[in-house]
Design a protein around this nucleic acid. Structure first.
Lengths: 400, 400
DNA sequence: CCATTTAATTCAACCACTGAACAAATAGCG
DNA sequence: CGCTATTTGTTCAGTGGTTGAATTAAATGG
């Protein structure tokens, strides 16, 4: 810890409080919360304001006597994050400002399975260029970018395997490097961070939904992925490959899975599995509309659909019971395609959880829908960029 | 971060380096590693030496010219930790010094199932008093105590459920409070920390075995527990109830378990299950000798025993595959009663892992025996006390 | 025996936080 | 309307702890 570290830590501490406070706090309130003196907080805030990270809000009306406080809020015109997502049937890009506000958002629908990786990334780069232009038009400065992909990503940002896209060993940063505007390096972190989309969706939920805590966020897209948040931070695993929940064995002697195992969760609760159990295998539904279609049919009381959802919920419940026994989580969030199906998935899930979780008697497990919709991964990607600035503002300040 | 925090952080930083260095480092080497100046390191070390946390070793012979360095080592006569363990068939107490050396260790064998909790804790307090006397005779000062129990412990240290001991809602700190010498409160942390023994065994492995990393430590005692180490720290879960791996469903429609579920791991790989599958249900083996007996019979080629171990290993493999898919771990450590059975458990475990772990192709999962024996939990308990001092030396220094 | 090299300490300078005093801005009250 | 109480935010001398250079200490090698 150098001498300057103290200021770095206090910048992060104060900025973090401003970011999470329910109402714009005054310097005096920040001093009281953090234990710092008002003098120190004033000095720190001065740095933050000079760096365009914080601005003063309108004086907040307050009860009682005394000089009115000047509320501090995250700047809406400072740095922003660019978030992107590639999935089986769409591309997305968005811009999120420091306050977490989504300032720009475009989704480009297209079946990307027949398209080459280079081509898909080329289209994405065009979306990103548009997003950057939109951000600059609003006075924002992009401070970094993150991209979510439905697959395994290694430390260098290379996509090792994305089965549903048909990708294998795709060097994403290299392929995108030629395309502006993603070429700057900020503060030791690569200009473009590539990450599993389930992890990013969990991050989005962490910041948008109920505050920190321990939860599992299950993304039911074409495959089943999960992001794990432990003690308020995303857990990525030794190599960033955590959350491959789709291939957890539910019935070890069950039907074979293309991963090589048998009875994987995906064989019971994956989109294909549900559709085929519901007798809709040949219906050729686009991946993005299948969940709502299933919900309609379930609403109408279609027996095969109800049975398929019950089976899927049971499998999910068995898997979640394993996870909760292992990690002692209090909440499970269902996102992606599962969100519209919650009314039918939840009862069998809870039944299995209650039976199989050793500690269920002392504290029930909550199963709830994600607060964000299908755009969660892209928003989470952009959010991860601005969150990094909030966690280490010194890096941003060191560089204008 | 107050002004004094800087010194606190640097005390912890330097002490941590001294603790983990392979050879006694000099002040100059510490300065180079940490980025601090030699002046600062000297000042910090002076504080640590004054607080009896560090002492100077004999000058280390070095090649080349120059004034010889004075090596710094953790003090062997400063604070120490008292570790205790209660299990089904024994009590244990030990004293570990700052350097991690076990300075005292006693095990008291006795079947504790018929004994009341108060009585068992009374006996434990006598062991602890003996350990304290031994520690003081060696010039050590006990800085805290930790106790491992085979069950669920809540935040207050109360044992909510320890099925194999037959305990339910036992207020351990209260029952031990009357018994010296466990009554001091150190630095906001309760004088006695009560913790699940599987977690403590994992901690012991973390410090004694291969350095930090991500691993799962499975303790095969009468029940099956696990400790989870993520990024070099023990993960305890929302309520400290993580690692209840024994009740992860292996075959959801399998035989009923006393937890209320069906097909739990414990029904395939628990000690009772293995013995009964091996046809030794009525043999009335003491819990502590059963594993070695099984190993003997397996060595002799007894078919029923080999089949039972194969079944147990398969179930463990299926469970570990779930865990690795979820957490992306690179290592699984088998401890407790599983250690002597590794030659027979490992092959079926690896077979299941290879089949079912999605990322197994890129990086194999290592399954290895624990480096500590049956005493791991008690040593881990004592280690957790001294580790806390190493992580926050300021608390200890603030107090003499 | 002296030059060289590396280790550790000393000391003035500096950075950031501290605490108290002060200025600013408002509400309440007579 | 003016005075007081109250709370916010700033100013400033003081202090703790790190910084960097100079100095001393203790060895090797020619």
């Amino acid at each position: 810890m150098r001498q300057g570290s103290l200021r770095e830590l206090n910048l992060a501490l104060v900025l973090g409080r401003i970011a999470t406070a329910p109402r714009p706090p005054s310097r005096a309130a920040l001093a009281a919360e953090t234990g710092l003196t008002r003098a120190t907080v004033s000095a720190v805030v001065e740095d933050l304001v000079a760096g365009r990270l914080v601005t003063e809000a309108e004086p907040t009306p307050r009860a009682g006597a005394g000089r009115p406080a000047r509320g501090l809020v995250l700047a809406g015109d400072g740095p922003a994050g660019l978030g992107m997502e590639i999935n089986v049937d769409y591309l997305a890009a968005c811009v999120v400002d420091l306050a977490g506000e989504v300032r720009h958002h475009v989704v480009h629908r297209a079946d990307l399975r027949p398209v080459s990786a280079a081509d898909a990334l080329g289209r994405l780069a065009r979306l990103a260029a548009g997003a950057r232009a939109a951000a600059e038009a609003e006075g924002l400065t992009l401070a970094g970018a993150a991209l979510g992909v439905p697959g395994l990503v290694d430390a260098a940002g290379q996509v090792r395997l994305a089965p549903n896209l048909g990708w294998r060993d795709v060097p994403v940063p290299e392929l995108l490097a030629g395309h502006p505007p993603l070429t700057e390096v900020v503060d030791g972190v690569p200009a473009l961070v590539v990450e599993n989309e389930a992890n990013l969706a969990a991050l989005a939920e962490l910041h948008a939904g109920a505050g920190p805590g321990n939860f599992l966020h299950i993304s039911g897209e074409v495959g089943i992925g999960a992001g794990i948040v432990l003690d308020g931070t995303l857990y990525r695993g030794s190599r960033g490959w955590s959350g491959e929940i789709g291939h957890i064995p539910v019935r070890p002697d069950g039907p074979p899975c293309r991963c090589g195992g048998r009875g994987c969760l995906e064989r019971y609760a994956g989109q294909e599995a549900i559709l085929s159990a519901a007798g809709l295998a040949g219906a050729d539904l686009p991946a993005d509309t299948a969940p709502t279609r299933l919900a309609e049919l379930a609403e109408a009381g279609q027996a095969a659909v109800l049975a398929a959802l019950h089976e899927a919920g049971t499998a999910l419940g068995i898997t979640v019971a394993s996870v909760v026994n292992l990690l002692d989580l209090d909440t499970v969030v269902l996102g992606g395609g599962y969100a519209p199906l919650i009314p039918w998935l939840r009862p069998p899930m809870l039944a299995e959880i209650d039976r199989r979780v050793l500690t269920a008697a002392w504290s029930p497990v909550t199963v709830r829908p994600a607060t964000l919709g299908a755009t969660a991964a892209a928003v989470g990607a952009a959010g991860s960029v601005v969150r990094r600035i909030i966690a280490r503002p010194a890096g941003w300040l060191a560089r204008l």
